[in-house]
Each structure stands twice: as C-alpha cells, then as structure tokens.
C-alpha cells in the first residue's frame, strides 16, 4: 500500500519499522521523546520538529532522551555500535557536529581500518542540514563535504520522502557508520511512499528526468531547484537530464559518467560552499574520466564562500536558485563556453 506522506513521517516510519524488526536498534537524542523529568504530557516533543513523535509510545525506553552533551552521547552511540547494538543517534542540527566531531572522525570512522578490518560500527547519526529556514549561521550549514572527505564514513542526503525512508532503513542495516543528512526545508514535502519496509542500496543515483542536451547533478533540496531549472530549459527546447545522487559516499560515479558521455555537458549543483565540495569533486572526476566527452567546461552552481546569513533577503540569495542552475546549463550550450566564478544568485 502506498500513500502520500511527508519526509518527516517517512523518517519516523523507517525508525519504527527497524525498531520493530531488530531489537538491537535503539534511538537517542536531545528531546527526541521530550518532557523527560517534567510534569506535563508524556512524549511531549518527539524531537525539536516532531520527527520522532509517537515512537516512545511504541518502543518505550529504546527511545532515549539525552542530556545536552553531544560528545558524550554520540560517542556512546558509537561505542555501543562497536559492541553489537545498532544505535541511531540524532544530532538535532548537523552544525552541532562541531561539538562531537572527534568521536565521529577519529573514532567511528577509523575503527575498522585501525583495527585491521576486525571492527564493525553500525551507527547512524542523523540530523538536519541546509539553509532557508531563517535559522542563521550556526543552524543552517550544508556540511556534507566535511563528511565525504573522511574515509570510513558513509554519507546520505535524500531529496524526498520515498528515498528518505528507504535510505534510512538501509543506513540502519548498514554495518558502517552513516551520516544521514535531512534537509529541514524538505521535512514537510510529501510524495507517494509505500507503507511496507524497503531499503534503497547506497551508491545508486536516481535519474529523475531524462535528457540528451545537458546533465544536471545534485542532491538534497537543490534537486528540486534542478528539476525546476530543467522545466524552464525545456521551454527553451533544451532537454536536461537530472541526477539525484541520494548518497554522497559512496557516490554513483558510473551514472554520472554515463550521462555526461551522452550529453557532453555537465552542471553540478551543491548547497555547500564552493571550495572542495561535491561539485568540485564531481567536476574533477568527470574531467579525469570523461574529458573526451565534454563539449563545454563543467559549470558549478553552489552556495557562496560565506556563512549562512540570517536576513531572509540575503538567505534567499544564498541557496542555488533554479534560475542560476538554468543559466549555468545555458552557459554550457553557449558557443564561447566561458566559466565565470561560481557564486549564487
């Protein structure tokens, strides 16, 4: 059975199904139950934006509130994972990674290699990413490139409810540490999602739209901007192929290269800052492995090299727009093929 649910509900459902299936799955985070120790209603928050609402009633103490001590509880989730549990730890906003990054990149990410392939750390760290929520510089970042840089971490960033459910189920079953990035501005977006359980394998991009003229690659919220750009391009008789990466580490190089070999043109869209991000990574890969297929310089559309501004008037210029993506696609088709510096707006 399939029905329309939001990305928030899809994540809730994935957690519910996996907790039912596997008693070693535990879920922890700040206020993910809510009202712990207080005298009002039980299950009062279900997470700061209500993603885990109702799960405590179903799973009791396998859903745990934590003190505001990220390095301690994220580290504990990692330690428990190394000892046979499958913890899902919520880091409310991924920006708080700054507080607990050691446990993630020096510990979880390295156990398997440092211990000669003998350790397994099946932990999922999920949290909100992305701008557009008026949440300002310390609650809005797209830090995905920091995570993809680290060997040992898997990095996921779904663009819709269907993928969020299948990828989270896969993340929980996966035997490596997974950073699961949820764009807060997609939480309310609905799509058809089956009620039953299903897993989407990592490293398989989703081709959302076929086209022979230009390839547009993105992930997360900007996938929707890329789709809007493709609609606008179609009105100008330019057919864009849109690829949603879904997972950033591992990444589906084959789908990207296969598409570029057909279109000869590439636009990479990343909500992260312009230096050393997914866009530069993909541009470099294509330059190395599909140079002969390229008919124009690769175009990158990214957020600017600035923190996320608070003022709505500035934040609206910050995230790559459909117009900027369409303009970049048209530049790959322009005869001169100039490549201006990649900034938003």
């Amino acid at each position: 059975m399939s029905r329309k649910i939001s990305m928030k509900q899809a994540i809730n459902e994935a957690l519910d199904l996996e907790m039912r299936r596997d008693p070693t799955v535990i879920v922890m985070g700040e206020d993910i139950v809510g009202g712990t120790g207080a005298h009002g209603e039980a299950d009062a928050w279900g997470g700061v934006l209500g993603v885990t609402k109702g799960l405590h009633a179903k799973h009791g103490d396998r859903l745990m509130d934590t003190p505001l001590s990220e390095s301690a509880y994220i580290g504990a989730a990692i330690g428990a994972a190394a000892c046979g549990l499958r913890p899902v730890a919520e880091l409310m906003f991924m920006d708080f990674m700054g507080v607990c990054f050691d446990q993630i990149f020096n510990q979880a990410a390295k156990f398997r290699y440092m211990f000669g392939g003998k350790a397994e750390t099946p932990v999922v760290i999920r949290g909100m990413v992305g701008a557009g929520f008026r949440a300002a510089a310390q609650h809005s970042q797209m830090l995905t490139p920091l995570f993809t840089h680290i060997p040992g971490l898997k990095v996921v960033c779904p663009s819709n409810a269907y993928d969020a459910k299948g990828l989270l189920i896969q993340a929980i079953r996966d035997n490596d540490p997974v950073i699961f990035c949820e764009h807060k501005n997609l939480y309310g977006m609905e799509c058809e999602v089956p009620a039953e359980s299903y897993a989407i394998p990592f490293g398989e991009a989703n081709v959302l739209r076929d086209g022979d003229d230009v390839t547009i690659v993105s992930y997360g919220l900007t996938v929707h901007r890329a789709m809007a750009a493709a609609d606008a391009l179609a009105r100008e008789r330019v057919e864009a192929e849109v690829i949603d990466l879904r997972t950033l580490s591992p990444i589906d190089w084959d789908s990207i290269v296969e598409s570029v070999e057909r279109t000869g043109r590439l636009v990479v869209v990343d909500e992260a800052h312009p230096r050393c991000n997914l866009a530069t990574d993909i541009a470099a890969y294509v330059g190395q492995h599909a140079f002969g297929a390229l008919k124009a310089g690769v175009q990158m559309v990214t957020a600017p090299h600035t923190p996320v501004p608070f003022a709505p008037s500035l934040e609206d210029l910050y995230v790559p727009s459909a117009e900027a993506i369409a303009a970049a696609a048209l530049r790959t088709l322009a005869p001169t093929g100039t490549t201006p510096r990649s900034i938003a707006a």
Binding site: E30, D31, G34, G37, A38, W45
Partner: peptide
C-alpha cells in the same frame, strides 16, 4: 527545551 533539569 522540554527536558527537566531535575533529570538531566
């Protein structure tokens, strides 16, 4: 947030 100091 919603969590009591008494507990945390």
């Amino acid at each position: 947030e919603s969590t009591a100091m008494e507990w945390a």
